[in-house]
């Protein structure tokens, strides 16, 4: 009889929902694990309460993180996580509200919500798992797909320049903007750890390798090769400048914390206004 060995993070996982739907070699699991480690660290340090964490996930492979973690988790339609999370944060300001989704979910269909959450410096932690493709629906182009790349809906090559999420977030007033990579889980965990302590909006773009779908398009479907291909493109920098955020598959990607400030967030502004009104 096989002996089930308990993983130290099992207590944060809805194990009854396993196995995950992620393909073999998918790196979303690494992102989830890094995040859970960061959360665990904060809980153990007494800086975060487990019953004050809410996950909000939309639709897509990456969004499923919200389905597998054992915290309060709310799932909703494709692209509509941010407004839903915003309302939860307003009514449960003591909660750390974490939005997880893919590049399509948050930047394409949910792009308008992202824009306004950034503008509001809304007190959310937004994690965009960027696999540069629509994974769940089988390999269509996304706003972060590299220029000229073949996808199933751009069979002659992608004519669009991809979105630099970091530049967008930095220009609109978020408090914390960082890029991580699933290929560098320790750094990712540190970034998550920091982000969990922020007020205002903390946005983390996480590059991830997707051997099954994206890999097929670039001709590298072997999980290890796919992972190493992305890893070779990553440069780690301590405090990278905005210019170094350039998003280009050919030239590679700089990961690190691009912006870290401590402006009042939306919730601070709101409660200040309401305090004078209500007297409490």
């Amino acid at each position: 009889m096989a002996v089930a060995v308990e993983h130290p993070l099992d207590k944060y996982v809805r194990t009854e929902k396993l196995p995950t739907l992620w393909c073999p070699g998918c790196t979303i699991g690494i992102v989830m694990t890094s995040l859970l480690r960061a959360i665990d660290q904060r809980i153990r340090e007494g800086l975060l309460r487990r019953d004050q964490i809410t996950f909000v996930g939309g639709i897509g492979c990456s969004a499923r993180i919200a389905m597998y973690v054992r915290f309060d988790s709310v799932r909703t339609a494709h692209g509509r996580t941010i407004p839903l999370a915003t309302a939860i944060k307003i009514l449960r300001p003591e909660h750390k509200v974490i939005v997880v989704g893919g590049d399509g979910d948050i930047c394409a269909i949910g792009g308008n919500h992202l824009l306004h959450a950034l503008r509001r410096n809304m007190d959310l932690m937004i994690i965009i798992v960027n696999n540069m493709i629509y994974g769940m629906t089988g390999g269509q182009v996304s706003p972060t797909t590299p220029l000229k790349l073949y996808t199933t809906t751009t069979p002659y090559g992608n004519p669009e320049k991809p979105l630099n999420i970091i530049r967008l977030a930095c220009s609109l007033g978020a408090n914390f903007v960082a890029r991580g990579s699933a290929t560098h889980p320790h750094i990712l965990q540190q970034i998550f750890y920091k982000a969990l302590g922020k007020r205002g909006l903390a946005l983390i773009e996480v590059l991830s390798s997707c051997p099954e779908i994206f890999g097929r398009h670039i001709g590298i479907t072997d999980p290890v090769k796919s992972f190493m291909t992305l890893r070779d493109k990553i440069k780690v920098k301590n405090n990278p400048s905005l210019d170094e955020s350039e998003y280009d598959w050919e030239k590679g990607f700089v990961i690190g914390v691009y912006l870290d400030k401590d402006d009042p967030g939306y919730i601070d502004n709101l409660s200040l206004l309401y305090k004078s009104l209500r007297g409490f």
Partner: peptide, 30 residues
């Protein structure tokens, strides 16, 4: 707001309905 509630204008009706759903999941009438 004077009675302890919240009234927020969102960026569109999509955001509005999802915000109402989110609010309702905190057991607040929305």
């Amino acid at each position: 707001p004077r009675r302890g509630g919240y009234v927020i204008q969102f960026e569109d009706e999509l955001a509005s309905i999802y915000a109402v759903i989110g609010a309702s999941w905190t057991c607040s009438k929305a």
